[in-house]
Design a protein around this nucleic acid. Structure first.
Lengths: 201, 201
DNA sequence: GTAACTTTAGACCAACCGGTCAACTAGTTA
DNA sequence: TAACTAGTTGACCGGTTGGTCTAAAGTTAC
C-alpha cells in the first residue's frame, strides 16, 4: 500500500491521548483505533510502546521550547519575558480546554511524575529537559541583572525555582480546571526572580 | 479464621506501592502479594480497587496535614513556619529515600496528575484537599501580617501560590532524586509570601 | 510482466487485569 | 456439640494488555 502518513498519524494520536491520560492509561490498541491504523502497522513503525512515548516527549518538548523562546524573543523587559511564559502557557491550556473541556497541565511534568520513579532512564531524560528549560529562564534572569532590574547573583538556581513554580501552578490549574490561574499567579515567578537568593552551596 | 489486621496490611501495602508507582501501575494482585493476603480477602474488605485508593489518599492526607500542623505549632515566626513546612517535607522525602532509594514526591500531587483528567470526582476531591492545605498556609500568612512581618493583603491566593510552589519543588526534587532540594529552595516560598500581590479579582 | 521490496492487515499469543464465587476454616454463641 | 458467622482461599471469569506473525496488497524497478 501507499506509504502515507501512517507514522505521523500514530504519533499525533499518541500525543493527543497521552497528553490527556498519561502513558500507562493509554493502550496501543487505543492509539491505533484513534489513528485508524491496524496494530501490525504500529509495530512496523515502532519496536515497542516505549518508542512512541519518546516521540510524544520529543514533540511536546519541541512545543514548550518554542513557547519559551517565543517569550524570550518578545521586545519587552527581561522580567516581563518570564511573565510572558506564564501568559503563553495560559493560552496553551486555554486552547486545550476549548478542544477537550479539560486543563491537561504540562505533558512533560505529568509524564515525569508518572514514570520517573520506576524508570530510571526516563527520569534522567526528564532531568535533562528540566535543565534545558531552566537554562532558558536563566538567560532572561541574566539580562535582567545586566540592566539592573534585579540584583546580581547566580541565576541558575533562581531559574530552577521559577520553573518549579511554573510546574506547581500548572498542577493547580489542572486541579482547578482553570487555565486563567496561570496568568493570575504569574507574579509569583517575578517575586522569586526579585528576591530569591542562591541556595547554599 | 482470626480477624487479624488483614485490612490494615492491605492498606499499608497499597500505600507503599502507590506512593512509588501511582494508581494504574499497581495491580490488586501486587497489593495482595505484598500484604500476603489472598485476592478473595481483598474483595472482602474493599468493593473495588478504587476503594483502597480512597484509603491511600486519606492516609497520605492525614500525614501531610499533620506535617503542616507540626510546622504551624512550632514556636517560631509565622514566615519561619512556612519555611518549616519545606524542611519537614525534605526530611520526609529523605526518609523515603533511605528506605527505597528514590524520592517519591507528594503522593497527593502525584495522584492528582494521574487521575484528575479522566476522573472528575477524583479531581474535585483533590481540589478540596488543595484548598485545605492552602487554608493552613493562609493562617500563617495572616499571623505574619498581624505582626507586620509582611504587608497586609488577601492571604488565600498567596497561600495557594506557596502551595503550588511546594508542589513544583517536590517535582524538581523527584526528577533530581534529591530530597535536599526542598530545603535549598524553601526561600522561594518566603519571596512569594513577601512580594506576591493578590491576583486580580 | 514480473520480481523485489515496503507497507498494511488482523488473527493470534501468553500474560495479566479487576472482579466473582463457592468452598472452607476458625472462633463465638447456644 | 451443633449451629452460626466472620474471615480466608484460590480457582475461575471475560476482557484487555503489549507484542508477534503470516499473508496479502501496493509500489517500484527492470
Amino acid at each position: 500500500m501507499r506509504k502515507k502518513n501512517t507514522r505521523e498519524r500514530l504519533i499525533k494520536s499518541a500525543i493527543d491521548l497521552m497528553m490527556a491520560k498519561g502513558y500507562h492509561a493509554v493502550s496501543v490498541n487505543e492509539i491505533c483505533y484513534d489513528a485508524h491504523v491496524a496494530k501490525g502497522s504500529f509495530y512496523h513503525y515502532f519496536p515497542a510502546k516505549w518508542d512512541i512515548l519518546k516521540e510524544v516527549i520529543k514533540a511536546r518538548d519541541d512545543f514548550y521550547k518554542d513557547l519559551f523562546y517565543r517569550a524570550m524573543a518578545a521586545d519587552i523587559s527581561p522580567l516581563a519575558k518570564i511573565r510572558r511564559i506564564f501568559e503563553l502557557a495560559s493560552q496553551d491550556q486555554q486552547s486545550v480546554m476549548d478542544a477537550t473541556g479539560k486543563v491537561a497541565g504540562c505533558t512533560i511534568g505529568n509524564l515525569t511524575l508518572e514514570l520517573s520513579y520506576a524508570d530510571e532512564p526516563a527520569r534522567q531524560l526528564f532531568q535533562q529537559l528540566f535543565a534545558d528549560y531552566a537554562a532558558i529562564i536563566s538567560q532572561a534572569l541574566k539580562q535582567s541583572m545586566d540592566i539592573g532590574e534585579i540584583p546580581r547573583r547566580p541565576a541558575l538556581p533562581i531559574a530552577q525555582a521559577i520553573f518549579a513554580y511554573l510546574q506547581g501552578i500548572l498542577l493547580l490549574a489542572k486541579t482547578e480546571n482553570s487555565p486563567q490561574i496561570l496568568e493570575q499567579f504569574a507574579d509569583g515567578a517575578i517575586m522569586i526572580a526579585q528576591g530569591l537568593k542562591a541556595y547554599p552551596a
